Simulated assay, not measured.
Amino acid sequence: MLLRERDTAKGVLVSVCDEDCLGETYEDGDISLEVTEEFYAGEEATDADPEAVIDALQGATVGNLVGEESVGVAVDAGLIDEERVLDVDGTEHAQLLWI
């Protein structure tokens, strides 16, 4: 999984994606999900194991996840409600917001 953390004016943004999703665009009706290098990868991204992903999401203000493995880690850790996971063209997508 690719993990990227960045500080923003509104808190910590964490993006996580399965490596095979990088560079793909998923579309389903009005929904279009583009998994770009700019947002999910880049020099700041790391190849992360499940523990690192969970730690990052627990410290995030906002999380954005794409792919079965990435979303599955967050669901298994109880950070994402499985009922709230979107299926976009056969690919899992979830967002996390701590308030």
Rank of each mutant, 00 (worst) to 15 (best):
70 S>Q: 10
77 A>T: 15
28 D>E: 15
7 D>L: 00
31 I>W: 08
83 E>M: 05
76 D>H: 12
35 V>Q: 09
55 D>Y: 00
45 A>F: 00
17 C>E: 02
71 V>Q: 04
38 E>H: 12
60 A>H: 06
76 D>M: 04
24 E>S: 09
42 G>T: 09
51 E>K: 12
99 I>M: 06
84 R>T: 14
18 D>I: 02
49 D>V: 01
88 V>L: 08
37 E>W: 00
2 L>H: 10
92 E>W: 07
35 V>M: 04
3 L>Y: 12
48 A>E: 08
38 E>T: 11
69 E>R: 15
64 N>C: 10
30 D>K: 12
42 G>W: 00
67 G>P: 04
79 L>I: 14
84 R>F: 00
24 E>G: 00
50 P>A: 06
10 K>R: 13
94 A>Q: 08
85 V>A: 09
14 V>E: 08
71 V>N: 04
18 D>Q: 03
34 E>V: 06
59 G>R: 04
44 E>C: 11
17 C>P: 09
64 N>G: 02
31 I>Q: 13
77 A>K: 12
81 D>C: 04
76 D>N: 12
62 V>A: 12
25 T>P: 10
92 E>T: 05
55 D>F: 00
4 R>N: 05
64 N>A: 01
10 K>T: 11
21 C>H: 07
89 D>M: 07
68 E>P: 08
42 G>V: 03
65 L>G: 10
8 T>H: 02
85 V>T: 08
72 G>W: 01
86 L>R: 13
63 G>Y: 04
78 G>S: 09
60 A>N: 12
83 E>I: 09
87 D>A: 05
79 L>F: 01
19 E>Q: 13
98 W>K: 14
56 A>R: 03
78 G>E: 12
74 A>R: 12
53 V>A: 01
4 R>D: 02
97 L>R: 14
87 D>L: 03
33 L>Q: 01
65 L>T: 15
26 Y>Q: 05
90 G>S: 13
24 E>T: 05
28 D>Q: 15
93 H>M: 06
82 E>Q: 09
48 A>R: 10
42 G>F: 04
12 V>L: 15
46 T>F: 00
83 E>W: 06
61 T>W: 09
67 G>W: 03
10 K>Y: 03
76 D>S: 11
25 T>R: 10
6 R>S: 14
75 V>C: 09
1 M>T: 13
26 Y>S: 04
36 T>G: 11
44 E>K: 15
6 R>D: 11
40 Y>M: 03
50 P>Q: 11
33 L>P: 08
28 D>P: 10
15 S>G: 08
64 N>E: 10
12 V>C: 11
43 E>C: 04
66 V>Y: 09
76 D>K: 07
71 V>W: 09
77 A>D: 14
77 A>L: 07
25 T>F: 00
85 V>S: 06
81 D>A: 14
6 R>H: 05
73 V>C: 01
29 G>Y: 02
39 F>C: 03
1 M>A: 13
52 A>T: 08
